[in-house]
Design a protein around this nucleic acid. Structure first.
Lengths: 159, 159
DNA sequence: TATAACATTGACGTAAACGGTAATCTTGTT
DNA sequence: AACAAGATTACCGTTTACGTCAATGTTATA
């Protein structure tokens, strides 16, 4: 019986495919231990469960986990940082919910503005990192170009 | 007496200004403990010392420490990763040394090639990170633009 | 020269982010 | 029905990257 699952996701518009912890581990590249850990520390909201108390992950769960992994590996964020980022995302989600039900135009615009503010805050962090990386990249490329010039010089002199 | 320092750096072409651990901590934003730790684990080669066994940091040391910090904060690298990167840099340094003393053009070109190879390897890592960041950035900006369109729509409908 | 304010090296402590194991269920298969 | 395979929680262990003393030595200054 999977009535439990149906209950949890019956009002979800997503494709309600569910995955075992093994499948999710394989797809995300995270270990099963890590999946349980992220749930334990609240990075991932409690997943659905089968009647036998086995975890069942939704597509949304997987998406969130992949996002977490990106933040961890790409940005080198700590789980605390990631939690903060996700809370922003979650607020955006709530905002979006509210947006749907809001009828007044002015209030809708205000909610869009608030969403933008949250997004821009994240953009700033990312752009800051990118600027630093860009500088490192420029330095390295300058070295390659310097080598290029030296090579040409050597070639000219050897003629 | 600072004969020790003079001995250590007498053949260094750099400005041989030396800094106390406090000064370096202030300038790099690393704690004194971290400075000692990085030296202890070999990320920073042993610094010069005063007669009284106090550490004296050179400009080169500071430069290396700032580089380490960038790798740590920007790329989110572990100290193990950073050690690997620095070893590449160090090999480049050695290569450069050898280059100076090499007289044969062919050998010089070969060394430039080897240097390029090392640099490109680092470039690849950086570009990979940047690509990931760029993607996140694009996603966020797409959301802002989506909001922009919605705002315009609301404005039009409210007239 | 005495004292305060710095430094040094152990040594132990700690928060973060999991890894690994034990005891106990659950489930697909024979 | 029985058994192997895999899941769950609980709990202890580990690594990384430092923080925090304590005991001791050094140095600038009154």
């Amino acid at each position: 019986m999977i009535a439990t699952d149906e209950h949890f996701f019956s009002e979800n518009t997503d494709a309600l495919r569910l995955y075992s912890i093994d499948q999710v581990a394989a797809q995300t590249g995270l270990t099963k231990r890590t999946l349980r850990y992220y749930e334990e520390v609240g990075l991932l909201p409690p997943t659905g469960r089968t009647e036998g108390n086995y975890r069942r992950y939704s597509d949304e769960d997987i998406h969130r986990l992949e996002h977490i992994k990106k933040l961890r590996d790409l940005l080198g964020f700590s789980l605390a940082d990631i939690r903060a980022m996700l809370e922003v995302d979650d607020e955006r989600g709530i905002l979006k919910e509210a947006y749907q039900h809001e009828t007044e135009a002015a209030a809708r615009v205000a909610q869009l503005d608030r969403g933008d503010e949250l997004i821009r805050r994240q953009l700033q962090i990312i752009e800051q990192k990118m600027a630093g990386l860009e500088q490192m990249r420029a330095t390295l490329e300058a070295n390659i170009e310097r080598h290029e010039r030296k090579r040409k010089l050597l070639l000219k002199n050897s003629l």
